[in-house]
Amino acid sequence: MTTPQPKISCRNLWKIFGPDPDGFLARHGHAPQTADFAGSRHIGAVCGVSFDVYPGEILIVMGLSGSGKSTLIRAITRLNDPTSGEVLLDGQDLMKASQAELIELRRHKMGMVFQHFGLLPHRTVLSNVAFPLEVRGASREERERRAHEMVKLVGLEGRENYFPRELSGGQQQRVGIARSLAVGPDIWFLDEPFSALDPLIRREMQDEFLRLQKVLKKTIVFITHDFEEAIRLGDRIGIMKDGKLVQLATPEVMVSSPADDYVREFTRNAPRDRVITVGAVASPVPVPLNGVNILASAKIGDAAAIVLSSDKPIAVTDDQGRSIGAIDRETMIRALYPEGRA
């Protein structure tokens, strides 16, 4: 199977704040090290970041406050122009795009949702959702039809004439999501969209987000500082520190093989039972099929009861039912509680 062409490609992206970012980069061969920033009055907010995002993928970018994750998303969209590097959208170099071209791209190809809902308080739900279409010059009939569709999609049917002050925080965020989807974007950028919500509402919005993605299959870059949220939503996760992309991997690889101590600390309390698959920890030596078998793609939490109650290794099978390895009680315990932690 051939790898699809990336929807977004970032190549050696830098965003430096200070009195002379371009000169600072040039003086250090366009690859300054951490020590070079000391005493320079420059801050490396995004430092030589490269990655691809593929069609239909949810890429999570996370890190602590000040790690550069929000600056990165603003650099990709050129809300803040990068100091150096390349950003390609469907092969088009955004660094060479004029302001008029960028406006058109944001109006037609990009949807954005931020932590603060940014709803217009004097407009109703329907009017808020229709607003980007109004800016784009759509007819009243077209924008109201589309807005009604989006309001229904996010589960707010019946509240079209409510004002933001009459909605809960979760409902306001749904309006923000509907508004960002109204233009039919190819790519969806979300910057900590649920972090201001209470835990129960946040979980509800994560469920809603996953439901929408099943329907819409958007290409998504999602910023968060919450690792549980990252592993629940993301196809891949990128962890940033001091402006650098420390590791980019699937949740399973990141939890089982952290790149360094910083990533290891991030993943220390990860729910391994919901992230790691049986196939990742099973012995590669097959055992005979005996009627009680486990799919390699099953999460270890789903298989734990069967494995821990058996005195013998249990066959692990692929999707075609062929034995490809085995898992036993000791392996399961080690997978659930690495380093002897219980």
Score class of each variant (00 low, 15 high):
residue 18 G to I: 06
residue 291 G to I: 08
residue 304 A to V: 07
residue 104 E to H: 13
residue 92 Q to T: 12
residue 155 G to E: 03
residue 317 T to F: 14
residue 106 R to N: 02
residue 309 S to R: 09
residue 10 C to E: 10
residue 222 F to I: 06
residue 15 K to S: 04
residue 272 R to F: 07
residue 338 P to R: 15
residue 276 I to V: 15
residue 85 G to S: 03
residue 54 Y to S: 01
residue 137 G to K: 12
residue 50 S to P: 01
residue 290 N to F: 00
residue 249 A to T: 01
residue 274 R to M: 10
residue 50 S to E: 03
residue 75 A to M: 06
residue 10 C to Q: 06
residue 294 I to P: 11
residue 134 E to P: 03
residue 4 P to H: 05
residue 226 D to L: 00
residue 14 W to C: 11
residue 62 M to Q: 02
residue 162 Y to W: 14
residue 316 V to E: 02
residue 144 E to C: 05
residue 56 G to M: 00
residue 186 D to K: 04
residue 228 E to N: 10
residue 7 K to C: 07
residue 69 K to C: 11
residue 336 L to G: 01
residue 216 L to N: 12
residue 257 S to P: 03
residue 233 L to H: 08
residue 157 E to V: 15
residue 307 V to F: 04
residue 247 Q to T: 07
residue 259 A to G: 02
residue 335 A to D: 00
residue 32 P to Q: 04
residue 79 L to Q: 09
residue 246 V to L: 08
residue 115 Q to S: 00
residue 55 P to D: 01
residue 95 M to Q: 08
residue 106 R to S: 00
residue 219 T to C: 06
residue 135 V to G: 06
residue 5 Q to A: 13
residue 75 A to G: 08
residue 298 A to L: 15
residue 40 S to G: 00
residue 180 S to P: 07
residue 205 M to S: 08
residue 38 A to I: 14
residue 55 P to Q: 03
residue 309 S to I: 11
residue 129 V to H: 11
residue 143 R to Y: 12
residue 142 E to D: 10
residue 327 I to Y: 14
residue 335 A to E: 02
residue 121 P to G: 07
residue 215 V to D: 11
residue 36 D to Q: 12
residue 337 Y to D: 06
residue 261 D to S: 03
residue 234 G to Q: 00
residue 314 I to L: 13
residue 6 P to T: 00
residue 61 V to H: 02
residue 244 K to L: 08
residue 96 K to N: 04
residue 32 P to G: 02
residue 146 R to A: 01
residue 40 S to W: 04
residue 285 V to W: 08
residue 187 I to T: 06
residue 298 A to Q: 12
residue 173 Q to T: 07
residue 52 D to K: 01
residue 81 D to C: 04
residue 56 G to Y: 00
residue 34 T to Y: 02
residue 331 T to Y: 04
residue 219 T to D: 10
residue 40 S to T: 00
residue 39 G to I: 13
residue 102 L to S: 03
residue 23 G to I: 10
residue 4 P to N: 06
residue 120 L to H: 10
residue 278 V to G: 10
residue 134 E to S: 04
residue 272 R to E: 06
residue 87 V to A: 04
residue 127 S to E: 13
residue 253 V to R: 11
residue 5 Q to V: 13
residue 103 I to A: 13
residue 156 L to V: 10
residue 189 F to T: 12
residue 84 S to Y: 14
residue 178 A to M: 15
residue 288 P to Y: 02
residue 162 Y to E: 15
residue 185 P to M: 07
residue 11 R to I: 05
residue 256 S to G: 00
residue 229 E to D: 08
residue 257 S to G: 05
residue 101 E to S: 01
residue 303 A to G: 06
residue 56 G to Q: 02
residue 39 G to Q: 08
residue 323 S to F: 02
residue 162 Y to H: 10
residue 228 E to H: 13
residue 104 E to S: 15
residue 324 I to A: 11
residue 197 L to Y: 13
residue 146 R to I: 03
residue 47 C to L: 02
residue 93 D to R: 09
residue 82 P to F: 12
residue 139 S to L: 07
residue 319 D to K: 15
residue 135 V to F: 11
residue 171 Q to C: 11
residue 283 S to A: 09
residue 149 E to G: 14
residue 196 A to F: 11
residue 294 I to D: 09
residue 10 C to W: 09
residue 1 M to C: 10
